[in-house]
Computed example of a mutant assay.
Amino acid sequence: MQLNGLIFTLPKEIKLLIGVFVIVLSIGFYTGLLFVGETSSANPNGIEEHYLGNEDDENAEVMRFKKSDQEMLTLVHNHILSMSIIFFLVGLIVSITQLNKKLKLFLIVEPFISVILTFGGLYMLWVGMLWMKYIVMFSGILMTLTFTASILIILKQLLVKK
Rank of each mutant, 00 (worst) to 15 (best):
H50V: 08
S41K: 11
M63S: 11
G128F: 03
A42T: 11
T74A: 06
K162C: 09
F112R: 00
H50D: 05
S41H: 11
Y30H: 05
G140E: 00
P11F: 10
T97Q: 03
E55N: 06
F147K: 00
I23G: 08
T74Q: 03
V127Q: 03
L3I: 09
P111Y: 02
T31W: 10
M72G: 06
I116V: 15
V109C: 09
L117T: 05
V22Q: 04
I27Y: 14
T144M: 05
I96W: 14
E61N: 10
L130I: 10
I151R: 03
Y123W: 15
E58N: 06
Q70R: 11
Y123P: 11
V76A: 07
S40G: 11
L152W: 07
L130E: 14
L33Y: 13
Y134R: 01
T31C: 01
G128C: 05
N4R: 06
L52V: 13
Q98F: 08
L130G: 12
E61V: 13
K12G: 02
L125E: 14
L81D: 08
D57A: 09
I18W: 07
L16M: 15
I154N: 00
L17S: 10
P11K: 06
D69C: 01
G91W: 04
F65P: 02
H50Q: 12
F35G: 09
N78E: 13
L142P: 05
L3N: 11
R64M: 15
G28Y: 12
I153R: 01
K102S: 12
V90L: 13
H50I: 01
G91M: 07
S40Q: 06
I135M: 05
F119E: 00
M83W: 10
L10M: 05
L73D: 05
V36M: 09
M129V: 14
K104R: 15
F65A: 02
F147L: 08
L158Y: 06
A149K: 09
Y51C: 05
L16K: 09
L103I: 14
L75T: 14
L105W: 11
L122G: 03
L73Q: 13
M124L: 15
G28L: 12
E110R: 01
V20N: 01
